[in-house]
Design a protein around this nucleic acid. Sequence first.
DNA 1: GGATAACATAGGCACATCCTAGGGAAGCAG
DNA 2: CTGCTTCCCTAGGATGTGCCTATGTTATCC
Lengths: 308, 308
Amino acid sequence: MLSLHQLRCFLATYEHRSITAAAEELGYAQPSVSEQIRGLEKTLGVALFRRVGRGVVPTTVADSLRPHAEATIAAAEEARRAVASVVAFETGTIRFGMFGTARLYAGAGLVADVLARHPGVRVELIGQNSNDVQEDLRRGRLEAAMLAVPTMSSEGMHVIPVARDELVYISADPERLQTPVTAQRLAEASLVMPETTWRAEDSTRTVLRQMLHETGRNPQTRIEVEDVETAVELVGMGLADSVIPHGAAVQLIPRLAPKAGWVSLRPQQFDTLAIVHRAGATLSPAARLMIELATARIQAIAEPLAPR
Amino acid sequence: MLSLHQLRCFLATYEHRSITAAAEELGYAQPSVSEQIRGLEKTLGVALFRRVGRGVVPTTVADSLRPHAEATIAAAEEARRAVASVVAFETGTIRFGMFGTARLYAGAGLVADVLARHPGVRVELIGQNSNDVQEDLRRGRLEAAMLAVPTMSSEGMHVIPVARDELVYISADPERLQTPVTAQRLAEASLVMPETTWRAEDSTRTVLRQMLHETGRNPQTRIEVEDVETAVELVGMGLADSVIPHGAAVQLIPRLAPKAGWVSLRPQQFDTLAIVHRAGATLSPAARLMIELATARIQAIAEPLAPR
DNA sequence: GGATAACATAGGCACATCCTAGGGAAGCAG
DNA sequence: CTGCTTCCCTAGGATGTGCCTATGTTATCC
């Protein structure tokens, strides 16, 4: 079997026209290099050097092999260098999962943070769908993610809560923002909810369902839309009210619904934002980097939670 | 130390997303491939796959490594292929030594023979200087050569006589061609000799010196020139006579000195043409090819000698 | 002709490679 | 939820490879 080691010994010998000199350069004893050359000649089935008393002389086959041997060694070195550069965050891809409101108001900033520190990397922020993200985590396609999670930890997953974000009632009608909104009022309200919020396995869904369930009523949504932005716009147009995380409200209402405002629920409800990864996994430097930066971003906006 | 074997195992595993499948493809047991992957991860200092229960999932580092691993394997395969193609005479260089009159009237034909059989090869016919050729043989830079040699074998060299070529006296004066030329007449003649013939360590030099020495006289050359062609031209112009191998006379006189002719010496003298290579060497296929073709060419012109 | 230099050979140690056997966790089916 | 299958890991042992030192052989140099 052809090996890089054989090619390295071959090249050193070819260049020095001497096995002894090659061994010295490579830091081996002379018989070791001699053996590698012999092995290479055997695998190729052809003599590469003529042993002529004292000294060796390359054959024309050696002349032909040399550039290919150099190219192969160079390719291997390049492979090593490429990996090193990825490890050093100079190149390569950093993949991180981020779903729910977290991505909404921290995603772009997080990517900016990463690129500011490591301009050469590609960043993939995965988070089209909360189910997919959890599935990706479970299957190992994603190493770590920041999610809005139910308070209990998922099976086989390690969950580190880093912040909580209050769920606030938003409306374009100042009347409805005078006092905190009770479950009763919430159940009677005409709501627009982003579908993802209801369907996804995150804490918003769990929290609100639970709150409404206590009134004995099912969630009443007049309108269901895909994303939070659309919901906020509809609130701004006075067509319905909604419940969204405070962080999203701060960011979206001035831009999309300047006439709307927000008020707490009563009792207060919170989304829990947490770092999630497979239990027992050793995190890569890239994952640790993303966790650190994402946590900092989130905690600058939402209310930090002491880990555990 | 990075190895091709590790890269092969890595690629198979990456493509199948499975160590077991990779092992099956490569013909190994599963733990063997597993160990190679682990070794590669150790040398690179980074995880390439996440072990996620049943199955493995490539990391982004693996994504980055893959093209380089493929390039490295391809380069190694290319090296192997290049050598195979040289061994099959499809490419590469064939080097052969040929000095003296042999090259003069068999060189071009020999090269043509080689190229007819193996159109892709480069041919190097070494023979500027007989001393250099012998030195190249001794130092191993040349594997084999065809030379005009003294009858005794050189030290450490294996000499296989393949033909002899009579040395003939050539002149533009028909008077001098009536009878064979004795040593006496030769010593008195006004000669033009190609310098190479006199200075080189080949049989012509030895033979003629010996012949003249018996008359008690030193070689008398009126003119010395570099090459045989010039000598023949000068003979054709009637400025001097010369002694050259019969094969050279046949080829050169009609072309360069149509008015000249030739006659034997008395006693007849011969150049011995022989294949020479280092004693105890195992000849490469290329060398055997050249020896076969050169011998055939020479024996078609000069008088064949049974080997040994 | 003896000293020197360079490669081959021999023998031995350490580690790599590869195998089989068996354990554990995840996924899947009943 | 229980058992089966799949896939990876670990353990242990046989074989092979890599590397060393010591020594033999041969050509070169003085």
